[in-house]
Design a protein around this nucleic acid. Structure first.
Length: 409
DNA sequence: AATCCACAGGAAGCCCGGGAAC
DNA sequence: GTTCCCGGGCTTCCTGTGGATT
C-alpha cells in the first residue's frame, strides 16, 4: 500500500484510538446477548426451572408456553434456563438433553421447521422436494435411535400458526406416542396473546400444560436492566446522568420493550463515540431514537418488492393529488397509471388490496376499513412515514426515473 | 325499512422455480 | 429423463357488509 492512500485512513484510525473511550464491550449491549443475571424475571425463571428440572431425573418436562410482548425477556429467559439445565446435567453426569431452538419468524413453514429439527440432530434434509410427512418420519426415526430427551424451543410460534396453521404443532405435541425411546418437550414462545384462539383445542391443551406470562417491564425495571448492562458494556464515567433514565422512559412508552431500550443505549453510545464526545448525553439518546426509527423504515422500504413499492408510490401520489381521504380505488387507479408508464402488467385490485394490508402491517401506511354509507365500504389509507423520506427513496431507485415527474407536487 | 355502493376478504386453483425420487 | 412435492405470488370468483340515501 502506498502512503497517499494510507494516510487518510491512518488518520481516521488514529482519531478513533485517541478519542475518549466509551464502549467497553459492544456485544453485551446487543439484544441477543444473554447476561448472567436477568433482573425482574426471577419468578419466571424459577417456574420454568422447576418444570424443566424433571429432565434431570429422567422425566419428560411438561410442554410450556411463554407469553409476552417483544422485549419482555422471553427468549433470554428460555435460553438462560436451558443453558443452566445443560450445565447441571453435565455436572451430575447425566446425558444432557438435545436442545433445538427454532425462530419461527424466520423458519415459518411446517416443512422448514421439520427440516430444521432434522438438521439439529444431524440429519441432512433437502430444503424442498420431499413430502412433509416424509420429513416428519425421518425425524421421528432418527430421534428414536437414542433415548435422549429433546427440548424444542419454538420462538415466535404465533407466526408459524398464522402462516401455516397448527398441523405441525399437532404432530409435535403427539410425537411422544410415536417414540419408543426418545422423548420430546416443547417450549412455545409467543408475542401474541390472541394466537391461542387459532389453535385446535387439543393442540392448545397439550402445548400449554404450563403457561408463563411475561409482563412488560416498567420504566424502573428497564432502568435496572440498562444499569447492569451499562456496567458491563460502557466505561464508568462515559455516561451522563439521566441517559439511562431517558432510554428507559422511551422504551417504557413502547410497551416496556427491553430490546428497544438496549438499542437506544447502544446507538447513543455509538453516536457519542463517533463524534468524539467524552460522554453519552441525553442529546445522543434523542438522536439515537430518531435514527433507529428512520433506519427501520428506510430499510423496510428499500427491501420492498417492486409491486409493493409501486403501491406505496401510488399512495404517495394520491395524497399529493387529492385533498380528501385516499381510498383503495384511488390508489389502484394511480397504480395502473404508473404501470402503464413503466410498461409493467398491473396486478388485480384484489392483490393490491393485500399489498396495502402488508404495507399497513409493516407500519409504513395506516389502512382502516371505513364505510361511507351509500358511497361504499373501503380502506382509508394514510402514510405513516414522512413524505420526504418516500420521495428520497423513490428518486434513488433508477427504475422509477420515468415516473418521477408524477411527483412534482 | 329497503337499497345499494365500493369495496373487503375468503376459497380455490393456477403457474412457477426449486428440488427429490424413480 | 419423468413425475412428484412444496411454497409463494397471483388470479378468478365469490359472498359479505356499514351506513347514507331513497
Amino acid at each position: 500500500m502506498n502512503d497517499d492512500s494510507a494516510k487518510p485512513l491512518d488518520k481516521i484510525f488514529e482519531q478513533f484510538l485517541a478519542s475518549p473511550k466509551i464502549i467497553k464491550n459492544r456485544d453485551v449491549l446487543r439484544p441477543t446477548y444473554v447476561p448472567e443475571h436477568l433482573p425482574h424475571r426471577d419468578e419466571q425463571i424459577k417456574k420454568i426451572a422447576m418444570i424443566l428440572a424433571a429432565a434431570l431425573k429422567g422425566g419428560t418436562p411438561s410442554n410450556l408456553l411463554l407469553y409476552g410482548k417483544t422485549g419482555t425477556g422471553k427468549t433470554a429467559v428460555a435460553k438462560y434456563v436451558l443453558k443452566h439445565l445443560k450445565q447441571k446435567s453435565v455436572e451430575t453426569g447425566l446425558d444432557p438433553p438435545l436442545i433445538s431452538y427454532i425462530n419461527c419468524g424466520i423458519v415459518d413453514t411446517n416443512y422448514r421447521v421439520l427440516a430444521q429439527l432434522n438438521k439439529s440432530i444431524g440429519v441432512e434434509v433437502p430444503f424442498t422436494g420431499l413430502p412433509t410427512d416424509e420429513v416428519y418420519h425421518r425425524f421421528v426415526e432418527a430421534l428414536d435411535t437414542n433415548s435422549k430427551l429433546m427440548i424444542i424451543v419454538l420462538d415466535e410460534v404465533d407466526m408459524l400458526v398464522k402462516k401455516s396453521g397448527d398441523s405441525i404443532l399437532y404432530d409435535l405435541t403427539r410425537i411422544n406416542s410415536n417414540l419408543e425411546n426418545a422423548r420430546v418437550s416443547i417450549i412455545g414462545i409467543s408475542n401474541d396473546l390472541k394466537f391461542k384462539e387459532y389453535l385446535d383445542p387439543r393442540v392448545l391443551s397439550s402445548l400449554s400444560e404450563e403457561e408463563i406470562v411475561f409482563p412488560p417491564y416498567t420504566a424502573n425495571e428497564l432502568k435496572d436492566i440498562l444499569t447492569e448492562r451499562a456496567k458491563l458494556g460502557i466505561y464508568e464515567n462515559a455516561i451522563a446522568p439521566g441517559v439511562i433514565n431517558l432510554c428507559a422512559a422511551y422504551a417504557a412508552r413502547e410497551h416496556g420493550d427491553a430490546r428497544r431500550a438496549l438499542d437506544l443505549l447502544r446507538v447513543a453510545a455509538e453516536l457519542a463515540e463517533r463524534e468524539g464526545a467524552s460522554q453519552i448525553t441525553e442529546r445522543h439518546v434523542k438522536e439515537a431514537k430518531i435514527q433507529i426509527e428512520a433506519d427501520v423504515v428506510t430499510e423496510t422500504i428499500k427491501g420492498l418488492p417492486l409491486q409493493s413499492k409501486l403501491v406505496l408510490y401510488a399512495i404517495y401520489i394520491s395524497h399529493a393529488r387529492s385533498t380528501t381521504a385516499v381510498m383503495t380505488g384511488d390508489v389502484y387507479a394511480i397504480y395502473t397509471e404508473l404501470c402503464k408508464e413503466l410498461h409493467i402488467e398491473p396486478l388485480t385490485q384484489r392483490r393490491i388490496s393485500d399489498l396495502i394490508n402488508e404495507l399497513d402491517m409493516l407500519g409504513i401506511v395506516n389502512a382502516r376499513v371505513i364505510s361511507k354509507g351509500r358511497y361504499g365500504r373501503s380502506k382509508r389509507i394514510k402514510l405513516a412515514v414522512s413524505r420526504k423520506l418516500i420521495r428520497n427513496l423513490l428518486e434513488d431507485d433508477p427504475r422509477f426515473q420515468k415516473i418521477s415527474k408524477f411527483l412534482s407536487d
